[in-house]
């Protein structure tokens, strides 16, 4: 058997991945990316349950209020195979949002918690090319975000800003396309998505477009044995997200919207019935409008179980 080139030696690659992950500060459910969906199939009548623990922090405030914004999210995802080609997804997050800021009256804390907006999606395999140990798939999806989260919450200081509300209050369609190419050794996923946000309570959040890429490389086992062995993947993802400005009472907020590029190193342990995964999402480029608050990082850890 020919010797692997040293660059592809799995032990060295595994070590590099761990260094990258440990050295650094709107998903769905089958094996595949951590921060977005895959085109891999869910079998007819198969149910996949996915839970993530997501912690985001944003403290890079170009303004004078010293804003510190933290979001803890627990998105729950259920995926159900209607047929071998059609899969339905339901995504419902529990959220805790906290904003600390300085005002003329001193340092204030504004906080809210509860269930957010429910998103229902349908994904259909339009194209599949299957070979031994390899599959390539193309799958469009379409869905709707329902206004199930509270969107008009108030506290002692008045109405909470849109970023602190649990939901948008509006019915927002989302659509896109996913491409997946998987082999025994690696997987590549890419997705393009657009969400059209509509109005509620005189507020229309800016539309969002995103382009996501993911590469998962099998670090272990070095060679495949009998049966269905577990895999350990090193993961690197990229998310480019453009958001339009928010419109409040007919006026576009100059301090909202912009484009951010994130890189996310991660790790996944995949078995036949369950997956454990974790990643850190780091903003590489943030081109935001006006005094919009910039992200520091997002940490994710989660699992998926198949029934």
């Amino acid at each position: 058997m020919p010797k692997e080139p040293i660059f592809f030696n799995r032990s060295i690659v595994a070590g590099l991945w761990l260094v990258l992950l440990l050295g650094s500060d709107r998903s769905q459910s089958e094996a595949g990316p951590i921060t977005f969906n895959t085109a891999l199939p869910v079998a007819k009548n198969q149910l996949i349950f996915r839970e993530q623990f997501v912690l985001s922090r944003a403290t890079d405030d170009p303004g004078s209020m010293g804003r510190d914004f933290r979001v803890l999210a627990l998105p729950t995802v259920l995926a159900y195979g209607v047929t071998g080609d059609l899969t339905l997804f339901g995504i419902l997050p529990y959220l805790e949002k906290t904003l600390d800021l300085s005002t003329a009256a001193g340092r204030q804390r504004r906080t809210t918690s509860g269930l957010g907006d429910l998103t229902l999606l349908g994904r259909y395999t339009l194209y599949a090319l299957d070979r031994l140990g390899e599959t390539r798939r193309l799958a469009p999806f379409i869905g709707l975000e329902f206004p199930t989260g509270a969107s008009n919450e108030r506290d002692a200081f008045g109405r909470l800003p849109p970023s602190l509300q649990l939901g948008s209050g509006s019915w927002d369609p989302v659509w896109g396309m996913i491409f997946t190419w998987q082999t025994f050794d690696w997987e590549f996923d890419s997705a393009a998505q657009y969400q059209r946000n509509t109005s509620a309570h005189d507020v229309r959040l800016g539309d969002e477009a995103r382009l996501d890429l993911s590469f998962q490389y099998r670090l272990w086992p070095p060679t495949l044995g009998e049966g269905v062995p577990a895999f350990l993947y090193g993961v690197l993802e990229s998310n480019v997200i453009w958001t339009d400005k928010t419109t409040i009472a007919g006026s576009r907020d100059p301090n909202s919207g912009g484009t951010t590029w994130f890189l996310d190193p991660g790790i996944q342990f995949v078995t036949k019935r369950w997956i454990l995964e974790a990643s850190v999402q780091i903003p590489v480029v943030q081109d935001l409008n006006g005094l919009a608050l910039k992200d520091d990082y997002t940490v994710r850890a989660g699992f998926r179980v198949s029934f």
Partner: peptide, 18 residues
Amino acid sequence: IRVDGASCPFCAFGLEKR
């Protein structure tokens, strides 16, 4: 049965189930 396309562990469960 020869099956094409199943190239990761998590995919095998659905196949087994059906």
